[in-house]
């Protein structure tokens, strides 16, 4: 379902990365996604609901971290807020903004001050787990990945947050 339009790129595994990236005329390339989180990134950004051309590469060789995932989205540019939503699972992701086949901007994502509707509170007695509502976590510490639920006020470690 993700490999819609760019059928000519289906054999991208055999191509050089640069070629694959520059094949985009206008749009965004999300690079250095840990392979285990690739499809979560797709889901968080709502890419499965998009009608634009999207190409997804998985388990590509990475000079930095062994293997990586990569997503290329044609004619789509993201606001910083939107893209920061993926910081929780993929903190080292890099975005290349492509205009007219050129990388015109590189964006490094950062964790936002508040995670809104990204994760579920691990506390079963929290109102957010018993009512159809938006979850909100304040980021207490970026270094230690600690969060605080706006509602039950529990301090939560990153590993205990479940993505929605």
């Amino acid at each position: 379902m993700f490999l819609r339009n760019d059928l000519r790129l289906l054999d991208f595994m055999n191509m050089k990365k640069e070629l694959w990236v520059t094949a985009l005329q206008n749009g965004t390339v999300i690079d250095h996604i840990p392979p285990e989180h690739l499809f979560e990134v797709v889901s968080i950004l709502g890419l499965h609901k998009e009608s634009v051309g999207i190409t997804i590469g998985q388990n590509l060789a990475s000079s930095k971290c062994g293997k990586k995932g990569i997503i290329k989205i044609a004619d789509r540019f993201f606001e910083k807020d939107q893209i920061n939503r993926i910081a929780l699972i993929a903190p080292n992701v890099k975005l290349n903004v492509i205009r007219n086949y050129e990388v015109c901007e590189k964006i490094y994502i950062e964790l936002p001050d508040e995670l809104v509707d990204i994760a579920r509170c691990p506390n079963p007695k929290c109102i957010t787990n018993n009512e159809p509502m938006t979850t909100r976590f304040k980021v207490l510490s970026r270094e230690e990945s600690k969060f605080k639920c706006r509602y039950c006020r529990r301090v939560i470690e990153k590993d205990d947050l479940k993505l929605l």
């Binding site: 007695k125 929290c126 109102i127 039950c152």
Partner: peptide, 10 residues
């Protein structure tokens, strides 16, 4: 008063 945590904030 509510038994669930965060009910009043919400």
């Amino acid at each position: 008063r509510h038994h669930l945590e965060g009910a009043a904030r919400y």
